[in-house]
């Protein structure tokens, strides 16, 4: 199979309007992936499937990833007029900036016919709130159907063109996306205090009499 660099160049030549970016991998696994701009994702996927040399006929695994908003602290230098006649005074100010996060979907593609792989595709959403739409690859590979539903359910990525986009593991009335990094689980469902940790702290808040650490409860 061609190298990821060669594949990227071939894709760039074939799809001029689509950005294809090589994502390095610091792990010894050496599994390099290609980040595709969402607009061209489905065309690229279809090409990869139908290309005779690649024949990536199986999308094995679909993964959602979450990168929450990050707070970046920057130091800003400002010069202000100093005392009359004197030089301007430079004031350093710490400024925090929110770097917007994004959701990402990773597709692991293999070829059953040619017995090679993986080619890894990634696509990012604009942000984590209102621009969370990505094109669905279910029309290209059926195997994405349930897996994309799972990513929709647990991460909140909306797949455009998915035939049946509903929650799959959580129930329909459930609010929120539990695999997101900033998901806060409800305080009190299936309360089960363990001897320590967050759960115990929560239990203390709710049931002050019920959860003394390590101490054994008096028998009723």
């Amino acid at each position: 199979m061609e190298s990821p660099e060669a594949l990227r160049d071939r894709l760039l030549a074939r799809f001029p309007g689509v950005s294809v970016e090589l994502v390095p991998n610091g792990s010894p696994s050496g599994q390099v992936s290609l980040r595709i701009s969402p607009a061209g994702l489905r065309e690229v996927a279809r090409f990869l499937r139908d290309d005779a040399a690649l024949a990536l006929d199986q999308c094995s695994n679909v993964t959602g990833l979450d990168s929450p908003d990050r707070e970046v602290v920057e130091t800003v230098k400002e010069s202000q007029p100093g005392a009359p006649g004197g030089p301007p005074v430079v004031i350093e100010r710490k400024q925090t900036r929110i770097e917007p996060g994004h959701l990402e979907v990773v597709y692991h593609l293999y070829s059953v016919a040619r017995r090679h792989g993986p080619v890894i595709l990634r696509a990012r959403t604009g942000n984590r709130t209102d621009a969370v739409t990505l094109p669905s690859l279910t029309p290209v590979w059926r195997s994405c159907e349930f897996q994309e539903r799972e990513v929709f359910d647990l991460y909140g990525v909306v797949f455009e063109g998915h035939p049946d986009l509903r929650r799959i593991l959580m129930w329909d009335a459930f609010a929120g996306h539990p695999m997101r990094k900033d998901y806060v689980e409800p305080d009190d469902y299936e309360w089960e205090p363990t001897p320590h940790g967050e759960v115990l702290a929560k239990a203390r808040r709710h049931y002050p009499s019920a959860a003394a650490p390590g101490a054994v409860q008096p028998s009723p």
Binding site: N25, G26, S27, P28, S29, Q31, L65, H108, P118
Partner: peptide, 23 residues
């Protein structure tokens, strides 16, 4: 492990069982 990712898969009795880990 160093920052990076890996997908490992084997032929389980039910089919391809794989783990995708990001460090």
């Amino acid at each position: 492990p160093k920052a990076g990712e890996a997908y490992g898969r084997i032929e389980g009795p039910k089919g391809e069982i794989g783990f995708f880990l990001v460090s």
